[in-house]
Amino acid sequence: MATMNAVQALNLALSEEMERDKDVVVLGEDVGKNGGVFRVTEGLYDRFGPERVMDMPLAETGIVGAAIGMAFYGLKPVVEMQFMGFIYAAVEHLFSHAARIRTRSRGRFTASLVVRTPYGAGVKALEHHSESAEALFCHMPGLKVVVPSSPLTAKGLLLSAIRDPDPVLFLEPTRLYRMLKEEVPEIDYTVPLGKARIVREGTDVTLIAWGSMLQRAMKAVEGFNTEVIDLLTLSPLDEETVLQSVKKTGRVVIVHEAPSMCGLGAELSALIAEFAMLHLKAPILRVTSYDVVLPLPKLEAYYLPSIEKIRKAIETVLQY
């Protein structure tokens, strides 16, 4: 066991898996010599060589398209998208091909690949470097969407994602890259996809969060008897864990940093309303960012859900 941050944990997952499986290749912008702009691929180029760690021309459409071709052929590409705000040019390939090739070919071809990308705000970055567009991808059947919330979950989930038979969008909360350190085993362990984890047990309220918002949520629930669910996989959803908790507590607060309109909180609310309505003692509340274009650093702090807002939502459902 070693103490490490999320960058180191992800790096470890990649190097371990590349050691184990020759089919795993890494490609993206600045992933080679530079080790990625956040250093997640640091050292891989020296260790595994330029054939397996590929610095690509600046072309998101082509990079993801080529990764899909590699996956058809049988390789296990792990693409690094430099920031989530630059993924849009690759959406056609992800939606029209990666997500559908299994269906289109009746299972003959699959696109088992991972697209990793830093995501989320709170690091005082330039425009397009703080996007939280997870809901777009959750909407697309055939894609999986995964968000770790700590070094430990980062490593275990990335290993699962690489081994998964389907395409996985792997969202790495930028704010958490170096914020938390924890013990991460240097052995082959996985955190299963499609399974949420209960981070804190409680009886009065169910709070659902993921990624960097989980940290805020954990601070906000202090003093309340709140159960906290860390989704880990956003699609496919672990509906069982969510519904079981809601049936126990009868109150729900959902926290996410994307805007509310068609955010994942809307899906969770609908799911709960459909299957656990009669257990509810209060309306389902969402604490989200505002429905505006993400502001630059001077206003970023006002944009993100604050601890106070989360606490207020918990109080509201408790007092209903």
């Binding site: 600045d30 702009v37 610095d55 690509m56 021309p57 600046l58």
Partner: peptide, 11 residues
């Protein structure tokens, strides 16, 4: 240069 990628890796 494009960050760390030299011109001859673009074209």
């Amino acid at each position: 240069w494009a960050i760390s990628v030299p011109r001859d890796r673009q074209t």
